[in-house]
Amino acid sequence: MNLRLVISGLVIAGMFTACNQTGETKDAKAVDSTAVGSAPAADLKDDKTQEVYNDYLKLKDVLVSSDAAGAQAAGKELATSLANVQGCENTASLANKIAAAGDLKTQRVHFTALSSDIVALLKHTDVNSGAMYVMHCPMINEGKGGYWLAAEKEVRNPYYGDEMLNCGSVKETIGAGKN
Rank of each mutant, 00 (worst) to 15 (best):
residue 63 L to Y: 10
residue 86 Q to G: 04
residue 43 D to S: 15
residue 116 S to P: 07
residue 15 M to R: 13
residue 43 D to N: 14
residue 149 L to R: 05
residue 20 N to P: 04
residue 61 D to F: 04
residue 1 M to K: 13
residue 89 E to N: 10
residue 142 E to T: 11
residue 79 A to Q: 11
residue 136 H to G: 02
residue 2 N to W: 15
residue 125 T to L: 01
residue 72 Q to H: 06
residue 64 V to W: 03
residue 38 S to N: 12
residue 146 G to F: 13
residue 135 M to I: 12
residue 67 D to S: 07
residue 162 D to T: 15
residue 7 I to N: 01
residue 72 Q to C: 05
residue 168 G to Q: 09
residue 40 P to W: 02
residue 60 K to R: 11
residue 165 L to K: 15
residue 107 Q to R: 08
residue 73 A to R: 13
residue 66 S to G: 00
residue 10 L to D: 00
residue 47 D to Y: 06
residue 179 N to C: 02
residue 79 A to D: 00
residue 147 Y to H: 10
residue 118 I to T: 08
residue 17 T to I: 12
residue 119 V to P: 02
residue 60 K to F: 05
residue 78 L to N: 01
residue 167 C to Y: 15
residue 116 S to Y: 11
residue 15 M to Y: 13
residue 117 D to T: 11
residue 51 E to H: 13
residue 35 A to F: 09
residue 9 G to T: 07
residue 174 I to C: 01
residue 136 H to V: 08
residue 163 E to V: 14
residue 154 E to C: 03
residue 127 V to Q: 02
residue 59 L to W: 13
residue 27 D to P: 13
residue 172 E to K: 12
residue 81 S to L: 09
residue 91 T to R: 08
residue 71 A to K: 06
residue 85 V to G: 03
residue 98 I to D: 02
residue 18 A to N: 01
residue 56 Y to E: 00
residue 166 N to I: 09
residue 84 N to P: 00
residue 29 K to I: 11
residue 179 N to V: 03
residue 164 M to Q: 09
residue 77 E to F: 10
residue 89 E to F: 15
residue 138 P to K: 10
residue 32 D to W: 15
residue 10 L to G: 03
residue 47 D to R: 10
residue 86 Q to D: 07
residue 157 N to F: 14
residue 24 E to K: 12
residue 102 G to H: 12
residue 153 K to W: 01
residue 15 M to I: 09
residue 18 A to G: 04
residue 77 E to P: 01
residue 7 I to A: 02
residue 140 I to D: 01
residue 141 N to R: 15
residue 14 G to S: 06
residue 129 S to T: 09
residue 165 L to I: 14
residue 81 S to A: 11
residue 54 N to Q: 10
residue 20 N to T: 08
residue 24 E to I: 13
residue 179 N to E: 03
residue 108 R to V: 10
residue 43 D to Y: 12
residue 161 G to T: 10
residue 82 L to I: 07
residue 137 C to V: 13
residue 133 Y to C: 05
residue 130 G to I: 03
residue 42 A to I: 02
residue 76 K to E: 00
residue 42 A to R: 05
residue 158 P to A: 13
residue 103 D to H: 08
residue 154 E to A: 05
residue 136 H to L: 15
residue 150 A to Y: 05
residue 77 E to H: 09
residue 96 N to Y: 07
residue 114 L to E: 05
residue 170 V to R: 03
residue 49 T to M: 07
residue 145 G to I: 12
residue 52 V to I: 13
residue 169 S to I: 01
residue 52 V to S: 05
residue 103 D to Y: 10
residue 4 R to F: 08
residue 127 V to R: 02
residue 114 L to W: 10
residue 168 G to D: 08
residue 135 M to D: 14
residue 39 A to N: 06
residue 145 G to P: 06
residue 7 I to F: 02
residue 26 K to G: 00
residue 56 Y to Q: 04
residue 44 L to H: 05
residue 5 L to I: 05
residue 18 A to W: 00
residue 21 Q to F: 04
residue 129 S to G: 09
residue 37 G to F: 14
residue 47 D to E: 08
residue 177 G to Q: 02
residue 156 R to M: 08
residue 113 A to Y: 14
residue 93 S to C: 01
residue 4 R to I: 07
residue 28 A to Y: 06
residue 16 F to M: 11
residue 157 N to V: 09
residue 45 K to F: 06
residue 56 Y to D: 00
residue 40 P to R: 01
